[in-house]
Simulated assay, not measured.
Amino acid sequence: MQKVVLYTQPQCPPCEIVKKFFRAHEIQFEEINIKNDVESRQFMIDQLASYSTPTVLINDAEVVRGFNLEELAGKLNIVCE
């Protein structure tokens, strides 16, 4: 099983779409709200070089920055029909 962390914030429609996408494909994920977790927000900026949500970290190694379902599907081996 892959470890998936989704960095989100309130009022982020693309974040909601990514969550629905994960649920539809039965991808388990941890959600981190960067408005509530300042330390994680700083990690996202400093370590992941991402300045927007959604940002997805896969297996502590691969990062998908911004809204890109096609890239997420590829990195998570999801076949979209």
Rank of each mutant, 00 (worst) to 15 (best):
I32L: 09
E39I: 13
N36W: 11
K19A: 04
D37W: 09
K20T: 05
Q28D: 12
I27F: 04
K35S: 13
Q11V: 08
I45H: 08
R41H: 11
R23F: 04
E16S: 13
L48V: 08
F43G: 03
K19G: 01
K35D: 14
L48R: 03
I27K: 01
F43P: 07
E16Y: 11
N33V: 09
P13Y: 15
E16T: 13
N33C: 10
I34P: 02
P14W: 10
E30C: 01
N33T: 07
V18K: 01
E30Q: 13
R23G: 00
E16M: 12
M44K: 08
R23S: 06
E30R: 11
V18S: 01
R23C: 00
A49F: 13
K35Y: 11
F29K: 05
A24N: 12
I17G: 05
E16Q: 15
A49Y: 14
Q42P: 00
R23I: 04
F22P: 02
I34R: 01
E30L: 11
K20R: 15
Q42T: 09
V38Y: 12
S40M: 12
F29S: 04
F29E: 04
D46Q: 10
Q47W: 11
V38L: 14
P10Y: 07
R41L: 14
V38Q: 14
V18W: 02
I45D: 04
V18L: 03
I45T: 08
K35C: 10
F22L: 04
P13N: 12
Q47P: 12
I17C: 06
Q47V: 12
F22Q: 02
C15H: 04
V18G: 00
I34N: 01
I27C: 02
D37M: 03
Q42G: 00
I17L: 14
I32C: 04
Q28R: 11
Q9C: 09
C12N: 08
L48N: 06
M44V: 09
E31I: 06
N33I: 06
E30D: 08
I45S: 02
I27S: 00
V18H: 02
K20L: 11
I45Q: 10
S40D: 07
I27N: 01
D37C: 00
I34A: 02
I45N: 03
E31R: 10
Q42M: 11
A24R: 14
C15A: 05
F29H: 07
I27A: 01
K19T: 02
A24Y: 10
D46A: 05
I45E: 11
H25W: 08
H25A: 01
C12Y: 08
R23H: 09
E31D: 05
F43M: 12
Q11N: 15
R23Q: 12
L48Q: 05
Q28A: 09
I45W: 10
E31V: 03
E16F: 10
D37T: 02
Q42D: 15
Q9G: 09
F29C: 03
Q11L: 13
C12P: 05
F43T: 09
F22C: 02
I34D: 02
E16P: 00
I34K: 03
D46C: 00
Q42L: 12
E26T: 06
I17Q: 14
S40C: 03
K19I: 03
K35P: 04
